[in-house]
Design a protein around this nucleic acid. Structure first.
Lengths: 148, 148
DNA sequence: TTGCAATTGTTGCAAATGCAACTTATAATG
DNA sequence: CATTATAAGTTGCATTTGCAACAATTGCAA
């Protein structure tokens, strides 16, 4: 017979389970780093989306970072109150806003990039370059196939 | 110059970011599947931990699935109310419980395994066997190195 | 042994979350 | 056009969450 129970085999071999474990840890690390900027994970996500492309609607932002509408609204409320972003009227449609970073918002960019790089380095530190590349390629493949 | 902004490069190349994206999607898929069992993600985690090994203390369960103490308490409260698990006194220590699955709890095992397998299959469907193996190996390496 | 520190688990309460309903605006259809 | 459907965004409210304080027990060290 086998020295593992069924559940143990699953935990050890399940890519999904392992990804969730790692992701939980990533959240915790990032949250920790964000604390000194006074930001939370959602705000971080919205800022990253806008650093990538400004002038998005709220819905577009939500899609990009997988955030439901009501949460996007509230996160943008919070970021606007901190004066990191601003809602501008969309001249093509009166029911949507176009979201832009303020100068203060742009200034957070470098700090956020540092956090991401630091966390990625932590995550990948045990892997040689070959495996880092393999992992990157594989994840890109999964995502570009429409998963998430 | 480069056709990508800095943030876009990060999003595309960041292993951490991609993992978080995928993990969010995994949560959503699993949550969806769990709905018909009347369970949430935390309860799912606790049950998986116990299917792997019974008789753990609450703290041990929390460590295994990365759940803080207060959440473990409440999740176990809920599972006990559903009669899927039971708290037994620990004869070695009067401040901790040993948690066991009930018959009803054991019976959920196969259903949970099916969910995991299904979600994993979705996740990996675009990858050939070689890459599946690579990914598994790499993730195991990261985790066994103490990340998470 | 006694006193202090650490562990285990629980809980009150404020804050965050998620659902569903809602408003307003645009698109589509006859 | 008028009507209906869809989309964008907001919000009330109940539930869930997370922090911090707590009680109870055990470990440790003087």
């Amino acid at each position: 017979m086998n020295k593992y129970t069924k559940a143990e085999k699953i935990r050890i071999n399940s890519v999904g389970w392992m990804m969730k474990m790692i992701s939980t840890r990533l959240d915790s690390l990032i949250k920790q780093e964000l604390k000194r900027l006074g930001l939370d994970l959602k705000q971080f996500g919205v800022l990253m989306a806008l650093l990538e492309e400004e002038g998005l609607t709220q819905t577009e932002i939500g899609k990009k970072i997988t955030l439901p509408g009501y949460a996007t609204t509230r996160t943008i409320d919070a970021l606007e109150k901190k004066q990191l972003i601003e809602r501008r009227t969309d001249e093509r449609s009166r029911r949507s806003y176009r979201i832009y970073l303020t100068d203060k918002g742009h200034a957070t960019g470098p700090e956020l990039f540092i956090i991401i790089n630091k966390v990625n380095e932590d995550l990948l530190s045990v892997l040689p370059a070959t495996e880092r590349k393999q992992l990157t390629t594989i994840l890109q493949k999964i995502l570009s196939a429409g998963f998430a």
